[in-house]
Computed example of a mutant assay.
Amino acid sequence: MEWINFILLGLFDHTQTHRVLFSLVFMTFIASLVGNTLMILLIHTDPRLHTPMYFLLSQLSLMDLMLVSTIIPKMAANYLLNSRSISPAGCGSQIFLFLSLGGGECFLLSAMSYDRYVAICHPLRYHVLMSHKLCSQLVAGSWLMGGIDGLMQASATMSFPYCHSREIDHFFCEVPLLVSLACADTTVFELFRYVCCTLMLLIPLSLIVASYSLILAAVLRMHSAAARKKAFTTCSSHLAVVGLFYGTLMVIYMRPKSYHSVGHSKVVSAFYTIFTPVLNPLIYSVRNKDVKGAFRNWLGKTHAM
């Protein structure tokens, strides 16, 4: 393959309206960096948050932090410098990191659903069933599965010859659009990619559905209304994140090729890569007394210094 740069057509034009939209996106990016960094800092420094649930949450924040840092800085630099080029190495890196983090988050969310299942259905055995060793293994497995998926798809995508148009009508290198530019038969790879993405989404989702089915059955057997309310409150944040995450990814990666629309894909991808990472720390902190308490303690220590 010739090492000629690709052209990213981007998300915004240089009109007044698009400048305002770009400013909003960039402020959202900064808010995402601050929110996820703060979440990781609070979980690391506050002893009350040194539990399996918050350890898994810190890994989710780390993945979201890396995701926005993979996509938005390059998009912003191209827009501000009025440039649209990205090198093949940069494109391959974006694909690898985007898919690794997306795949890793799929498995991490299933691990978080198992944590909620154990906490609600087996509270007396929680610290045995969710030991530090198992938590570390679940996190390592999530990163590993995501990394394998990202490496395979990035390597295959960048191995195709791109001898005609190199214009990618998107704001980052996304596999479906890039493969459509290849001047080679990509049928086998596209079938493999569809099966791979479907399994990467459906296997963790099946585990999440199984966990929450068992949780729902346990909650319905509870006699105390206060206990049922506490259980639903504990799970609501995770379910909201799962809904946002899987909803957008399924729209992107599980639609038949004939239903792909570039404009629609840009909007959905923007929601997943820009807005979901800033929503996750908000979802987990707004109704969470432990996180709000840790934040107040952190502010108190900061003012006291």
Rank of each mutant, 00 (worst) to 15 (best):
Y253A: 09
A217F: 08
Y246I: 05
V242G: 06
G247D: 08
S213I: 00
R228N: 01
A218P: 00
H260W: 09
T248I: 08
T234K: 13
P256T: 05
V242H: 02
V209A: 05
G243S: 14
L244F: 15
L220E: 03
L239V: 07
H238M: 07
A225K: 11
M254A: 11
S211T: 02
A231I: 04
L249H: 11
C235T: 06
A225Q: 14
F232L: 14
G243C: 11
S206H: 01
A210N: 03
V251F: 13
S224I: 05
A226S: 09
Y259D: 15
V241H: 11
A226F: 03
Y246E: 09
S258H: 14
G243A: 07
Y253G: 15
Y212E: 03
K230A: 11
L214S: 11
V241M: 08
L220Y: 03
Y246W: 11
H260C: 03
H223M: 05
H223P: 00
L244C: 14
S236R: 15
S236E: 10
L220A: 03
S211I: 00
I215R: 04
K230L: 09
I208N: 04
T234N: 10
Y246C: 07
K229R: 15
R228C: 03
M222E: 03
A225T: 13
A210V: 01
F245M: 04
H260D: 06
S237L: 07
F232I: 10
A210R: 06
A225C: 09
R228S: 04
I215W: 03
S236Q: 14
R255I: 08
L216G: 00
K257W: 07
V241F: 10
L249S: 06
M254N: 15
A217G: 01
T248S: 15
L239R: 07
S213Y: 08
M250C: 15
V242T: 11
K230V: 07
I252N: 10
S261E: 01
M222C: 01
A231G: 04
S236Y: 10
Y246V: 06
Y259N: 09
S206P: 05
Y246Q: 04
V219I: 15
P256E: 05
F232M: 13
A227K: 12
H260R: 13
A226H: 02
T234Q: 14
Y246G: 09
S261A: 01
A231W: 02
V251P: 00
H238D: 05
H238A: 04
A225L: 15
H238G: 13
Y246T: 09
I215K: 01
A218V: 00
P256Y: 06
S258D: 13
F245E: 01
V209L: 07
F232D: 01
L239K: 02
S224R: 06
H238F: 08
L244Y: 11
C235D: 00
S237F: 08
A210T: 02
L249Y: 10
T248C: 15
V242Q: 02
H223F: 00
S224D: 02
S213D: 12
L207E: 04
A231T: 04
Y246K: 08
L239M: 14
I208F: 11
S258Y: 12
A231D: 06
A240H: 05
S213T: 14
H260Y: 12
I208A: 06
L216S: 07
M254D: 08
T234Y: 09
F245S: 10
G247A: 09
A218H: 12
H238I: 13
